[in-house]
């Protein structure tokens, strides 16, 4: 019972952290000057929860963050894009965590890359235009770079925070 309450409290805390990180990130419109590229700071909280608990808790934190940020600053489309990216990235990260034996860094990279692929796929579907797939190489590389950064940060946070 005590563990459950503790977990609920920590999940709330990390959902709040994810929302703040997402908001801070939205203040900086461009990362490296290329449209559509974001650092994905909020993924830090999701990855942390995934490492500490299971994908279910991570999914809950992720959905709460997307809905709150979406209603505050976005619209239906931005929620849709975010959900697609987050769902694919969490699925891939969970798979990698269980099957690949990767460290947090590798899991984070797989999450960053799959997040970008998910968003690009939804964008191509909604726009009914395949020419935006030209962005794919850029988004793959940026997924690797941001994934490494977030992976490193999560690794450091995991070392320091005990639940």
């Amino acid at each position: 019972m005590f563990m459950d309450q503790k977990k609920t409290a920590f999940m709330g805390l990390f959902a709040a952290a994810a929302i703040i990180l997402g908001y801070v990130e939205s203040l900086v419109p461009f990362f490296a000057g290329i449209p559509g590229i974001k650092l994905g700071l909020a993924n830090l909280a999701v990855l942390f929860i995934l490492e500490k608990y299971t994908w279910k808790e991570a999914a809950l934190v992720s959905v709460v963050r997307i809905l709150v940020l979406g209603f505050l600053f976005g619209n239906m489309f931005s929620i849709l894009y975010s959900l697609a990216g987050a769902a694919l990235s969490l699925a891939v990260m969970t798979f990698m965590q269980k099957k690949s034996g990767f460290t947090v860094m590798g899991i984070s990279v797989s999450g960053g890359v799959s997040h970008n692929i998910g968003q690009l796929a939804v964008a191509a579907l909604i726009m009914e235009n395949l020419s935006i797939l030209y962005y794919a190489p850029v988004l793959l590389v940026s997924g690797v770079i941001t994934g490494l950064l977030i992976g490193f940060l999560t690794q450091e946070v995991l070392k320091r925070v005990r639940l």
Binding site: S100, G101, G106, V109, P137, V138
Partner: peptide, 28 residues
Amino acid sequence: MKKKEILFIAGILVFALILWAVTAYFRR
């Protein structure tokens, strides 16, 4: 990081490079 993670990342980067070369070729 483990060796297989570095290989995984290198694989993604090589794939991105090939994809970029192919799209650049068709965009000529």
